[in-house]
Design a protein around this nucleic acid. Structure first.
Lengths: 153, 153
DNA sequence: ATAAACTCTATTGACTCTATCGTGTTTTAA
DNA sequence: TTAAAACACGATAGAGTCAATAGAGTTTAT
């Protein structure tokens, strides 16, 4: 579940869209500049998110992107699953992206058993975190002095 | 933190070594056959684990590998970190494998803040699980009827 | 001495990933 | 009505990673 650059860009873009959620649309270029993301690459990513029904767009001179649902209705797990595939660290656990393993007997594989716990821990956080949480954290961090993350609860 | 095939092979091999932990050494070929791992590839992996001080070897005709420490003293996190690098899903969190991110301000990055929670959840499990746990689970699963993992607590 | 087994480096082929490019199409402000 | 802005979509290049194999060397029990 190492997040690719693509995935990071997507989540950062969604945070921007979440912050200005409403009927209005945000230009790609605005996101690109604010978040330091290559514009052409971002186009690709947003288009991909659109095909997943996560964002919607308006074309033309006053065009741009906006969230397709309220920020608190978009779990990060949904975004990551669409962009990166399985949350599980090994394919033989994943329900949606199952991949057969080479081990002698999957049902008796101790590694699979432990990795399932890891998967559940990850999924538990990412299913319950939404774009709204990202926005909330962004606001909170913005209004705080520069504390390292360890002191932020 | 998607585990590579290499990482899976390593952990499965360590489970075998854990099961027959003692002064005696296990041949690569035995592990390779039992676990369905390409022998030449496994050689490479075990040699790598040796350089990390996780296993030790004996050369010659009666040679082979054994754990360099008792199974309960080898946390899975150590193995995975050596083989795959950071446990964290994004490099800008990792203490041991830190990588700079392109975001405008890392200290105010909400994504980083959430991913730190994911990292902690993963690390919490993998720091406290050891090769001994893998062995214990293997034994347990072996003595059980074929239940899907969901019913195993 | 010989064979079995580890040691170590190199390399190959497939694949993935980031990023850029080109060329459309749609929309709308002027 | 026209031109510019922005999305749509596919193609592709370049770099890197990864699994797997290969080859030649060293060690050691018998």
């Amino acid at each position: 579940m190492k997040l690719s650059v693509r995935g990071k860009y997507a989540l950062r873009a969604l945070t921007v869209l979440g912050e200005s959620y409403g009927p209005e649309v945000v230009r790609i270029q605005a996101i690109s500049e604010q978040q330091n993301i290559p514009k052409r690459f971002l186009e690709q990513i947003l288009f991909d998110l659109k095909s997943a029904g996560i964002v919607e767009s308006r074309r033309g001179v006053a065009g741009g992107y906006r969230l397709a649902a309220p920020p608190d209705k978009i779990p990060l797990a949904k975004v990551i699953r669409h962009l990166e595939g399985a949350l599980a660290p090994v394919g033989c656990i994943s329900e949606r992206f199952y991949e057969k393993c080479s081990c002698p007997d999957e049902l008796k594989c101790p590694l699979r058993s432990i990795m399932k716990e890891v998967r559940d821990a990850i999924a538990n956080i990412l299913e319950h975190s939404t774009v709204a949480d990202l926005v909330a954290r962004a606001v909170k961090l913005r209004n705080q002095p520069d504390l390292p993350l360890d002191y932020v609860i």
